[in-house]
Amino acid sequence: MKRPGPVLTLLAGLVLGLFLLSLNATTGTKSASSSQVEAPAASTSPSPKASATSSPSPTKTTASPTPSKSAPPNADYAGRTDDDSSAIAVSLRNGKAIAYFCDGHDKESWLKGDVKDDGTMKLTGKNGSELNGTLQEGKRIRGTVDLEGQRYGFTADKAVKPSGLYRATATVRGAQVDGGWVVLPGDGRDQVGIVNRDGEPSAAPDIDPETGAVTIDGEQLTAEPVTP
């Protein structure tokens, strides 16, 4: 009896090897499948809503309005300079002022401007004339007038009619007449004034303190109270 040849032996070994290889592959697949454990699905629990805490709105602090000062009352003031050389009258109306300064001969100035709530005033006129004054308790005005390089201190007390400031303008005998008067406190007889005839100043005649009537160069005029 002949032994199988080497070829048969080799074929038998090859078949056995393929069988074992196939068996190992099948076993490994099953092991791998069984070893895989599905991870539990992540729970999608809703995230808690942040509770909105409503903070109270800050209380606005309203500042109390600063009380406004009232404008100085309407009034008239008249008086003399400290050296008694000249007179001055000031009329206040609704925060405005007009003033007249004169020496009764040839020096005069009309001035005007605003009056502040604290009673101070700066009035200006022609040729750089200037009045700086302060109303004191509504009873008087204390201040200075700068005119033609000189400074005059003055005090003008509150005036009651017929005292105060007067003016008359007209054309008399072909000349332009402009007269100004300061009627000082009292019975109206103490007056200081200047009349300009075409720009030429001279002492003014007295006016009637009750009516304002005045005669200039033979013609009767009426001097009226002056207000701003």
Rank of each mutant, 00 (worst) to 15 (best):
A52F: 03
P72Q: 02
E108P: 06
D103E: 06
T81Y: 12
A99M: 04
S22R: 02
G212V: 03
T222M: 01
K139T: 14
G104S: 11
V15F: 12
G179H: 00
V145T: 03
Q176F: 07
G186S: 08
A32N: 09
R140W: 07
P67W: 03
L21H: 03
A87G: 14
Q176E: 12
G193H: 10
P209I: 01
D106Y: 12
L165M: 12
T222V: 15
V90K: 00
V172I: 13
Q191M: 12
T26N: 09
G133N: 10
G125I: 09
S55V: 14
D187Q: 12
V160S: 15
S91L: 06
L20E: 04
N74A: 13
S57T: 02
L11T: 01
I194F: 07
S45Y: 05
T61E: 00
E108G: 11
S45L: 07
D146A: 06
A175H: 10
S86M: 09
D157M: 08
T144C: 11
S45R: 01
K107F: 11
G186W: 10
R80T: 14
T59W: 02
V37I: 15
Q220N: 04
G13A: 12
T44P: 11
D84S: 15
V177G: 01
T62D: 14
G164E: 09
Q36L: 07
T227E: 00
P201F: 05
T66W: 06
G28S: 14
T134A: 11
R142M: 09
P65Q: 06
P162C: 04
D190R: 09
Q136A: 12
R3W: 00
I216T: 07
P4K: 00
A63R: 08
K122D: 12
A41Q: 07
P67S: 07
D84R: 15
D146T: 15
E200Y: 03
P205M: 05
T9N: 01
T211A: 08
P58V: 13
A42W: 01
E219F: 10
G174L: 03
A156E: 04
N132Y: 03
G119I: 13
I98S: 08
V7Q: 00
T144S: 14
I88E: 14
A71I: 04
Y152I: 03
G79T: 06
G119T: 12
A87K: 09
G128C: 03
S70D: 15
E137F: 15
S202R: 13
L111Q: 12
A170L: 00
R151E: 00
K158H: 07
Q150E: 09
Q150Y: 05
I194D: 07
C102M: 04
T155H: 00
L11R: 09
G17P: 06
V182M: 05
T81V: 14
P6Q: 02
T62Q: 13
D84Y: 15
D146Y: 04
Q220S: 13
A75L: 10
I207Q: 11
P48Q: 01
F101Q: 02
D187A: 14
D117S: 12
S57E: 00
V37C: 05
A203P: 15
P162F: 05
T9S: 02
V192C: 05
S34W: 11
Q176L: 03
D106K: 11
S109C: 06
S51H: 01
D206M: 01
E210K: 15
G188Y: 06
A87C: 07
T26K: 07
R80D: 07
D146H: 06
S64I: 10
P58K: 03
H105F: 12
P40K: 04
E130A: 09
S34H: 06
G143Q: 04
N132L: 10
